[in-house]
Amino acid sequence: MLTRALIVVLVILNIGVALWWVLRGEPVSAPPASSAGVAQLEVLPTTQATPASAASPDAASALQDVTPATAPVAQPPVSTAAPPSAVADTPAPTPAASVPAPTPVAAAPAPAAVPAPAQCVSLGPFADRAAAQAAQSRAGNALRGAKLREVADAGATRYRVLLPPAASREEAQATVKRIVAAGVSDYYIIAQGEDTNAIALGQYRNREGADRRLAALSAAGFKATMVASGGDGSAQWWLDATLADGTDAAVARQRSGAAQQRSLECARLR
Rank of each mutant, 00 (worst) to 15 (best):
A198W: 06
S34H: 10
T70N: 15
L13S: 14
T242F: 02
S256N: 04
A250N: 05
T196S: 10
A36K: 11
S185N: 07
E208R: 03
P77H: 06
A39D: 08
A135T: 00
T67Y: 09
V114D: 03
L243N: 02
A69R: 11
S168A: 03
A267L: 08
P83A: 11
A219Q: 14
A92T: 15
T94S: 10
A131I: 01
V161A: 01
I190R: 05
K177M: 10
G124Y: 01
L269N: 01
R149I: 01
Q254Y: 00
P93T: 12
R268I: 05
A30H: 04
A198L: 06
A88N: 11
V78F: 09
G155P: 06
A172G: 12
T47R: 14
A107P: 13
A54I: 03
A132P: 01
S263A: 13
V78H: 06
P84D: 12
G257I: 00
V43D: 10
Q173N: 12
Q192M: 02
V180H: 11
G124S: 04
A88T: 12
A52L: 14
P72H: 06
G233K: 02
W237A: 06
V176L: 15
E26P: 14
T157S: 15
N197V: 04
P95G: 14
A244H: 05
V43A: 13
V251F: 03
T94D: 12
V180D: 14
T242L: 05
A106K: 07
A249L: 00
N197H: 12
A198F: 06
A113F: 08
Q40R: 11
P104N: 00
V176R: 11
R24H: 06
